[in-house]
């Protein structure tokens, strides 16, 4: 298990991570979400031994990254979508071979693993082409293969599908899910919240380096206070219909095109449409939008930490 306790990281006078406690168990994909500058990448780079925390403790499989960085590095790998992390003038196969040497993977293991990884990321045919001739997506896929070359126990994924075509991103999600099923511990940050909802059994939300909330995606939505939104489109928004809707709930909003909107707890769709019909309104459409993880993240980020705690 990866565990941080009261993790804090300062860059000069800026505090990037405040008192962060999180755990990344084996066999699960754990999400780490937040807006830009929230401290996600800093946290991941501390866990990857690239940065050292200012205070607090980090444990990776019982190892201390500060005292035992090399032992930790054998058990982890990092894939950062925003960085290339592979050598442009080497081929895909040569890159994986070289990184295999840096991880001291025995030759008899490395050769078939390189072939498997190239196949996994769809680069088998381009294996002997130099990376400088790869598209951005191909280079990113190779970077993902590099992150798996040491068969790590823990995989740290920082925006891994950034810039990837949809089919490749989908394949990568399958790979990540399969890795967790095989017992690997995965920590994932992503701006694609659908990806997080699909993959992560547990999600931490941070803002300005502080822990804001945690739970399953559904629990986070519930914690955020976001509610489903009912949108009722009427053929003609008469003053009587509008008055009836506002009388039903003062929070009702009238959107352009004669759409009556109401967000709130519980199931209000039936009662609202009945009220509109009784006021002489004719319906032309009804939409019930459940709150998304994105709504929850934005709402959590807007709330003061004290309220969330």
């Amino acid at each position: 298990m990866i565990e941080t306790v009261h993790l804090r990281k300062e860059f000069g006078t800026k505090v990037a991570v405040h008192d962060l406690n999180l755990t990344v168990p084996l066999g699960r994909v754990t999400g780490l979400l937040g807006l830009n500058g929230a401290g996600k990448t800093t946290t991941i780079k501390i866990l990857a031994t690239l940065l050292r925390q200012t205070s607090g403790t980090v444990s990776v499989g019982g190892l201390d990254p500060v005292r035992q960085p090399r032992a930790v590095r054998r058990r982890i790998n990092l894939i950062a979508g925003g960085e290339r992390m592979v050598y442009a003038r080497m081929t895909g196969r040569e890159n994986l071979w070289y990184f295999g040497q840096l991880y001291d993977v025995p030759g008899r293991v490395l050769r078939p693993r390189v072939a498997e990884l190239l196949d996994l990321v769809g680069l088998a045919e381009a294996a002997d082409t130099r990376v400088e001739r790869y598209s951005r997506g191909m280079a990113q896929r190779l970077s993902i293969a590099r992150g798996l070359v040491n068969d790590p126990d823990y995989l740290l994924l920082d925006e891994p599908t950034l810039g990837l075509d949809a089919p490749i991103a989908r394949d990568l999600r399958r790979v990540v899910a399969a890795l967790a099923e095989r017992g690997k511990g995965v920590l994932l940050t992503s701006h694609y919240l659908a990806e997080v909802e699909q993959l992560c059994a547990h999600v931490y939300v941070i803002g300005d380096g502080r822990h804001l909330a945690e739970g399953t995606p559904a629990e986070l939505v519930a914690q955020s206070g976001c509610h489903r939104t009912v949108r009722v489109a009427v053929v003609e928004l008469t003053p009587r219909v509008e008055a009836a809707a506002r009388a039903f709930a003062p929070a009702v909003r009238i959107a352009p095109g004669g759409v009556v909107e109401l967000s709130g707890p519980g199931d209000v769709a039936g009662a609202l449409t009945s009220t509109i019909i009784e006021a002489g309104g004719a319906l032309k459409g009804l939409e019930i939008a459940e709150p998304t993880l994105e709504d929850a993240i934005l709402a959590l980020n807007d709330r003061p930490a004290a309220v969330i705690a």
């Binding site: 990857a48 590095r73 990184f99 840096l102 991880y103 040491n150």
Partner: peptide
């Protein structure tokens, strides 16, 4: 400059 330093440093090689 090549953007490979992170990948190098995260590897256990001395």
């Amino acid at each position: 400059r090549e953007g490979t330093m992170g990948a190098l440093v995260v590897a256990p090689a001395r």
